[in-house]
Structures are given as C-alpha cells and as structure tokens.
Design a protein around this nucleic acid. Sequence first.
DNA 1: CTGTTAGCGCCTTCAA
DNA 2: TTGAAGGCGCTAACAG
Lengths: 335, 335
Amino acid sequence: MAGEVNIKRLAQELNISIATVSKALNDSYEISLKTKNRVLSLAKELNYTPNPAASNLRSNKTKTIAVIVPNVANNFFSLAIKGIEEIARKYGHHVLIYQTHEDAEMEKSFTNSLLNGRVDGILTSVSSNEYNSDYYRDLVKKVPLVFFDRVYESLDAFKITTDDYQISFTATEHFIDCGCKSIAFLYGLGKLPAGRARLSGYQDALEAHGIEFRDELVLDYSEDEEVNFSNIKTLFKEYKPDALFSSIEEFIIPAYMACAELKFRIPEDVKILSFSNMSSAKLLNPSLTTITQPAFEIGNEAAKCLFKILNKRGVDDDKDIVLKSVLIKRASTGC
Amino acid sequence: MAGEVNIKRLAQELNISIATVSKALNDSYEISLKTKNRVLSLAKELNYTPNPAASNLRSNKTKTIAVIVPNVANNFFSLAIKGIEEIARKYGHHVLIYQTHEDAEMEKSFTNSLLNGRVDGILTSVSSNEYNSDYYRDLVKKVPLVFFDRVYESLDAFKITTDDYQISFTATEHFIDCGCKSIAFLYGLGKLPAGRARLSGYQDALEAHGIEFRDELVLDYSEDEEVNFSNIKTLFKEYKPDALFSSIEEFIIPAYMACAELKFRIPEDVKILSFSNMSSAKLLNPSLTTITQPAFEIGNEAAKCLFKILNKRGVDDDKDIVLKSVLIKRASTGC
DNA sequence: CTGTTAGCGCCTTCAA
DNA sequence: TTGAAGGCGCTAACAG
C-alpha cells in the first residue's frame, strides 16, 4: 500500500546486488563504508523501511510482545502497561494488548492465538474467575512468558508480584494501632494467590495482636455493585465494625455510599483503608488510607524480565521478583 | 519456537501436495470433501495454525490495527480502547497500542513505524502539544486512518468526536439556571478543536444569557499540578467566582484542594462542574456535576469505521460522526 | 568486499 | 480434483 520501495528497488537503482543492500542496511562489517553510505542515503531518500512480515518470516522474530490483562480501564493495569511500554520501546518492540474481562476462556483463546509466532513473548496477569493452572503449566514451555501481579504461585515460571501478605499485615496493624477492635475485611480475588495473601496478612495481624478473627466480618466481593452496597450496609448494621479493610479498589465506592446512607462519618465513626491505585480518589478523600501497589514498576520489571529471557541473558536469576507496596496514611486524619 | 507444524508437514503426513493442503484449509471449492476433512482433522489434531508472518507477506494483510493515544492510564482512553478491542475481536484483528505521552515527536515516530505494512489501519487521538496538521494531511493518504476524540478539524479524514461545543453550552446554561453569575472556566487542550469548542460553548452560553465574558475568569492548564492549585487559589481570591467549569478532568483535584484550603464548601459556596470519565470520582463526590463523554462508544464507532474502510464498504458515508456527551447533575445538591 | 542462491511458510496461477 | 512451480521481501550461507 504505502511502501513499494524494497531492497530490490534500492539494489537496482544503485546497480548493486540485493544481498549487498541487505547487509549494508544491517550494518554488516563485510560492506565498505562507501557502499553503506550510498545505500543508507538512498534508503533515506526513498523513505525505505523494511517489510516486517518478510523479516519476521525469515528471522522468526516479530519485535512484538503481547500483554494480556483483565482490563485496561483500571488504574493498576493501565499504569502497568505504561511501564511495559516504556521498556518495549527501549528495545524497539511493539506491544499487542488483549483484555480478558476476567473470562478464562477468552484468556485461553487470546493466548492460543499467539502461539504461532505472532509475538516473541507474553506478559500476562491471569483472570480471576477460574483456576487455570494446568493450562499455564503447558504454556510456559511453549512461549517466553512472564506473569505479573496476578500469578499462579505453584507454577515454575517467571513472576513479578507485590508483597500482598506483608502490606496487608502492616495495614491491619495500622488499624489496630489506631485503636480499632472490630475490623471488617472486604474480600476480593479469592481465587488468586494475591487475594488470599491479603486475607492471610489481615488474619495473621489480628492474631499477632490477640484479636479474634471473626468469619462474619469477612465480606465476599460480588460482581454486582448493588449487592456489595447492600452487603456492606448489612455488615454495618449487624456487626458494627469500627474499620473496613478493603482488599480491592472496587469496594471503595459501595463502602462510601453505605457510610453516607447510614450517616457514618469517615474516619470518626468508621475508618476505611483500601488497596487502590486510584490516585485521584486518594487526593479527593483525605480520610481514605490506601495501599498503593507500584503498578508502573511492576510493568517495568515484568517487561525487563521478558527481554532478559528473549536475549537469553540472566535467565538463571531468581524467577520470583517481589516489589513493595506503599501504605499511604492520610495525615489529615491522624490515622 | 512453538509451531513446527506447517502445511508442508500436514502434506507429508497425508501424502498429498502442499497446494492441496493450502486449498483445503482455505475451504476452496476445488477440493473434495473427503480431502478437506482429512486435512482439517489432522490440522486440528496437530494443533496447526497458519504462520502469520507468512500470510502477511503473501497477502499484505496483517489482521492487526494500531491505536495511538496520549495515554492509557486515563479513564477516557482506557474505555475507548475497550470499545475498540471489542470490535477488533469481532473482526479477528489484533490491537497494537502506542502511548505518545502528549509528545508529538513520539507520535510521529510511532506512526511512521507503522507505515511499512505492520498494520492494516490506525486509530488515533492526536497529542495536544503540537499542531501537526501537515503531517497528518500526508499521512491519511498513505494508510487507512480514523481519528477519534482528538482530531484536526480542517482535515478531510474520518473523525469520531463528541459534541463538545453543545454540551459545554448546555452545562454553562445549567450553571446560569442555578443562579451563578460569575463562572470561571478552567481551560485545557487549547491547541485542539475539542478544547476550543468547549471554550466557545461556554462563551456563547454566557452571551446568550447576557452575561459578560471575562478573560480573567479563564485559567489555562499547566502541566504542573502545583501551579494549577495555586492559580485556582489566586482566581478564587481575586475574582470570587461562584462556579468553576473545568473543561478537563485534570483540574478537578487542584480545584477541590483549593476549595478545601480556602474552606469553601461545595456546592454551597462554589459550584464545580467538570468534563470527566472518572466514574468513581462522581460517586465519591456527590457535589460534582460532570459531563461524561461516551468513551466506550467512541472507541466502538471509530473501530467500526476503520473496518468499513478496510472492507471497502460504505466509505462514501459521512466522514464525521459526532456522538453525544451526557451531563450528569448531582441530585443531592439540587443543582 | 560483493554477488549468487536458497529458502522462511503460505498462496495462487497453471498444468495435469 | 490434485500437483508443480514461482514468488511475496528479506536474510544467511557460501562463492567469488
């Protein structure tokens, strides 16, 4: 369509062979400086760019990586993608993005469509609705792949994650230090290690401080915002927790709405803390303490890891990289 | 790496020719049903998938489109991408995503890297920092391209936009109806039609209601959040506006912070209205009236438009599609 | 230093 | 109904 200009054409115009042109373009040591310059300047003049399909076919490299995420309309993932892109660009690679919408079937179908050499490698954050461990066990043998954030822990594969357990423990302790006695836990991603680690951190912190863990203070996430809203109201009415620890961002809004409806002031009547990368919400709500994951850095590390694999360097490194999340306490509330 | 299984292999195993296999796979009428079935079942058994690089090279089609946006970590664009992906998947296409970070040079460099047939078409939302009209005038001749949201109006090209002028007019009227006399305008995207249309809508609404337009009530956006914060405080102190109309989401936070610092209550002391696709912020802040653009639909329409072009259908349709934004008034404030 | 040649995997004439 | 052959644009042996 656009191009029309290929190495054959360059070769003809310069009266040299196709191979010479190719080598000149690839800066081969076999070619004289003079020829290189002639080729390069004509290439520039004619606006030559190599046909990627042809190079791909020949070299079995696509200069393309794929990113598979549940969703891009999400603060965490969009930042992670930014981190990935930065590295990809540095390596001159293109980035294909696929959204699974938490659908494990779609996840598999996207992934399978990438196994025929469309990409050099894959970065993936698995969907939360089904445990697909067997599938990925086979997959990692077929294609360079790095998991980030949402991983299958039992898998022998490259994984970039955060310290979900540790930061949850710390956050729960923070509440306890503030004098909270009855801390409810809003539970999400229960099928994934990340979600379960957050729960464990909470449980263990309670235990460490001699506070009894009560099952009825744990609320499971529902896809339906209305249900979450009503469940939180019920939770407030029946068990009167003095704090809410939300393990996923999606609980923040129903929690706030429930407080508003019940005329609870935050943080005077009830404290709220959430995992969240919603930067603006933090600023808008000085009463909300948040755990922020280093989303950008996770993307960055994951991509770096993938390129290490692709370049066959340092693959003997530790396969598990764990980054630190940050607990941001709201100064204005003193807690 | 993964594949190894190609039509040659299929042909050998079945003792037929490569050409026959190829035709069978493409469901050619020349091939007997029996042969087709043999080929297809073996293909399935061996998990055959065609090598994309080879098909691309042969057919000059990549089954890939590119999306170029300023940023994905943004409510509007991430939703738009979702809309684009939905359509792309329907057409069996893959989606490359590039972020310009509002850098016109990067925008050009990405775009240029796509002109050699790496993609079948491009969807783009231009960056705001430089007016690149000449560049795009040439570009649209070289590659199927659809602009969405951020466009160059003077260009004869496919464009999917929203009713920025109209909705700004309506929103300003809404303020006037609420009794506001001194409405400040927080101005962004001034180099782009969308931004200027928002300003015009505001100006014309004032005029239509006999309110004088005052230049000092218009505040330009700065990249520096702190500067915006301080400018808004100054604006409040010097001109005491009773309403703020923010033409971009990025002003919301400094505006809120300024109000907090000056102990202004929203909406009693000052009303705030903003263009925003920050769904959570709306719910968290019942006092904020918002203009929400149909981001998902814009992506959807843009992608549909591109595939129409690629399939050479309906190209004579109107090149300009304008979708409607929605003004969401906060019931709780009565304004 | 430069050129010739043989494919990468697929599709498409054209011939059988 | 099937097969043989050529070529998409590029690269990598191998010769000269």
